[in-house]
Nucleic acid binder design. Structure first.
Length: 662
RNA sequence: GCCAGCGUAGCUCAAUUGGCAGAGCAAUCGCCUUGUAAGCGAUAGGUUAGGGGUUCAAGUCCCCUCGCUGGCUCCA
């Protein structure tokens, strides 16, 4: 008698033989609650999918990255079902999982109101409670078109299936992928009735009841397939988690992020403001913010001086001819303030970038190869006409100052220069307390560029090599380059794990061409230099905002606007603290004595709220020992610290740029 | 720029159905003289973003403008 046919598979690293028609869930002995899907040969699949001979099966836990994505995608389906039950006319867009949650786009006649959102969420809870089954069904293109005849956006997705357009539309791959089409039916557990269905690649949770915790967050409009010229759909954002605690932790994280918001801290700590009277995106720095900014700039200047940079200055406005020559008026006019007409019809523009100015400095006289690399540095203030909806505090302003430099070098010097430049950048960022980086390489935008393809390819390759040499993770950003050359940007993670774009390095073979820049080589021939654009902070304002949020306002001592405050127990102790103040001031420390008629407790509270790193308290006991009570802003304290020791500790923390206070 | 929400004292927020614009903090002036995150009292602070409309009566309802917030698109 022949043996029953068997499949030979690998389950969680162990080889096994199982009966034909065994499902992934059976092979994994999955409970469908903690293990909610299977990774089969590296592809996520439903637990109900049958295995084939030779399959390699791994469990997908709901609290893994893949598991959360499946959970969120399934929750997006529940959202869409709830919306179509409450708003039968709503047409479906796409509904992928995203970082921390999911969304689904709908075409509806009226945008959702906050009340709609609440009733949708309520309906979703009912669907979750019912425990509807997610059932996968393979369909042909024709069947899919027939079933989805009332869903015009889904039909469009079927049409572009597998094309570049499908890849380009964020999230569309979740619906159609590039292989066979599948529909997921939601089946009522008791009646077996089909409650809802959606075109979807899957996989999904076994049932809706497996969703442990979710919450709808907000509504927003979003352009269909991310194109500004397409109609706007109504997007509903939500979040979903593997447990109620995880959801709660996420909501707490959002609150924490809100407390760190640089716009809020900027007002609380009296650092800067963006007065309506001046205009959107145009900030003023108050004295305390000014101190931080000045110290940031001073240190950067010092480092650049040591790094072989020369300092230049250039004006904020120029005749249009300069930006015609640079190509900005052809490629960047939308991002510029409109021109001012002066001198009988002459157009003047505010500069959106400093590079053309620096090119003129390079070109002011003949240059020798002996001068290269020539590094021109400027804190250059630029003005860009940002669309009204995108302006955001200091991180997206209309006027800002770049720590901008342009490096002119030979082709031979380029690789070394990029290498040392990246090291210089990362080093400097570490001094400002950021140390978790990755790099991003932005390549040519096929619709917006100047110069030859092979020149772009060469520049991109050079940048890639420099990036790889750093041994950091490198992420590609196709089409993200500026019009004149590819770029590497340094992305840094802050204290609560958010990623910010910091430094940018751009390689440019094109502007030297347009400006006809030349140097005389050793053999007497005229040669074209290569140009590197780079900004380390990006913009000082943005960097300031990132640090403000990174430190939650508690800047390390060397950057703190007030580094130490003297707090007397009573008025009679003020003169003693004045002496301590004088000693600190002689060492260049920014110190104040709080001689107001508040009580000591209130003075401590005020200093804590202002996040002053060091508090020096003095009463009779301290004075008798020529000491102070040395309090740190974390609330800890050393009593009876001799004044000279306290001074030395503060001076050391500032001079050595300590990250912590002690 | 597009969609939605919001705009009350410097800040955080009240104001019942459309019915006298209010509190805490901050500020100013006093009192208190103090040992580890808010002492007490008084004073001042407002064209409720601006403009128009409905109404006996508008912070509240309607329209327009401006600004901000969250997204989309874009970006240092």
């Amino acid at each position: 008698m022949p043996a029953a046919p068997e499949l030979h598979i690998t389950v969680a690293g162990t080889q096994r033989a199982v009966a034909v028609a065994t499902t992934a869930g059976e092979a994994l002995e999955a409970d469908g609650r903690t293990v909610i899907a299977a990774m089969v040969n590296g592809e996520p699949r439903d637990l109900t999918r049958e295995l084939a001979d030779g399959d390699v099966v791994e469990p997908v836990a709901i609290d893994s990255e893949d598991g959360r994505a499946i959970l969120r995608h399934s929750t997006a389906h529940v959202l869409a079902q709830a919306v179509q039950e409450l708003f039968p006319e709503a047409k479906l867009g796409i509904g992928p999982p995203v970082e921390n949650g999911f969304y689904y786009d709908f075409d509806v006649a009226e945008p959702f109101t906050p009340a709609d959102l609440r009733s949708i969420e309520k309906r979703m809870q009912q669907i979750v409670k019912q425990g509807q089954r997610f059932d996968r069904r393979v369909v042909s293109d024709e069947e899919a078109r027939a079933e989805l005849a009332n869903e015009p956006y889904k039909l469009e997705l079927i049409d572009i299936k597998g094309s570049d357009a499908a890849q380009a539309a964020e999230g569309a791959g979740v619906e159609v992928g590039s292989g066979e089409l599948t529909v997921y039916d939601n089946i009522h557990p008791r009646t077996g009735e089909q409650c809802w269905k959606d075109l979807c690649r899957g996989p999904h949770l076994p049932t809706t009841r497996v969703i442990p915790a979710f919450k709808l967050m907000r509504t927003a409009a979003a352009y269909w397939r991310g194109k500004e010229t397409n109609p706007q759909l109504q997007r509903v954002y939500g979040t979903a988690w593997e447990s109620k605690d995880a959801l709660k932790a996420y909501l707490t994280f959002l609150e924490e992020a809100e407390k760190r918001d640089h716009r809020r801290l900027g007002a609380e700590l009296d650092l800067f403001s963006i007065p309506d009277e001046i205009g959107s995106g145009l900030a003023v720095f108050h004295p305390k913010g000014g101190v931080i900014r000045r110290v940031m700039e001073d240190y950067s200047r010092q480092r650049h001086e040591r790094g072989g940079y020369e300092f230049v200055y250039s004006p904020h406005a120029t005749k249009s001819a300069l930006f015609e020559k640079s190509g900005h008026l052809d490629w960047y006019a939308d991002g510029m303030y409109p021109p001012m007409q002066l001198d009988g019809g002459q157009d003047y523009y505010l500069k959106p970038m400093n590079c053309p100015m620096h090119n003129l400095i390079f070109d002011a006289r003949g240059r020798s190869y002996r001068e290269l690399p020539l590094r021109l540095f400027e804190f250059g203030t630029v003005y860009r006409y940002e669309k009204s909806g995108v302006v955001h505090g200091l991180t997206r302003a209309r006027g800002f100052t770049q720590d901008d430099a342009h490096i002119y070098c030979t082709k031979e010097q380029m690789a070394d220069e990029l290498d040392s430049l990246l090291t210089f950048v990362l080093d400097l960022l570490r001094d400002y307390g950021l140390d978790d980086f990755h790099l991003e390489l932005s390549t040519k935008d096929p619709e917006k560029f100047i110069g030859d393809d092979h020149v772009w390819a060469e520049a991109t390759d050079t940048l890639r090599q420099a990036a790889e040499k750093q041994g950091l993770e490198l992420v590609m950003d196709p089409g993200g380059a500026a019009f004149y050359g590819p770029k590497i940007s340094v992305q840094a993670k802050d204290a609560i794990g958010r990623t910010w774009q910091m430094s940018t390095l751009q390689l440019d073979f094109n502007l030297p061409e347009r400006f006809d820049l030349e140097y005389t080589a050793a053999d007497g021939t005229r040669q074209r230099p290569v140009m590197i654009h780079r900004a380390l902070f990006g913009s000082i304002e943005r960097f300031f905002a990132v640090l403000l949020e990174h430190y939650a306002g508690a800047f390390p001592a060397w950057l703190a606007p007030v580094q130490a405050v003297g707090i007397p127990i009573a008025d009679e102790h003020v003169p003693y603290l004045r002496e301590v103040e004088a000693k600190l001031r002689a060492e260049g420390i920014r110190v104040e004595v709080d001689a107001s008629d508040d009580r000591m407790q209130k003075k401590i509270r005020n200093a804590q709220k202002q996040k002053v790193p060091f508090m020096l308290l003095a009463g009779d006991e301290d004075i008798s020992k020529n000491a102070v009570s040395f309090r740190y802003r974390d609330g800890s304290q050393n009593n009876g610290v001799p004044v000279d020791e306290a001074v030395a500790e503060i001076v050391a923390a500032v001079r050595e740029r300590h990250q912590g206070d002690r």
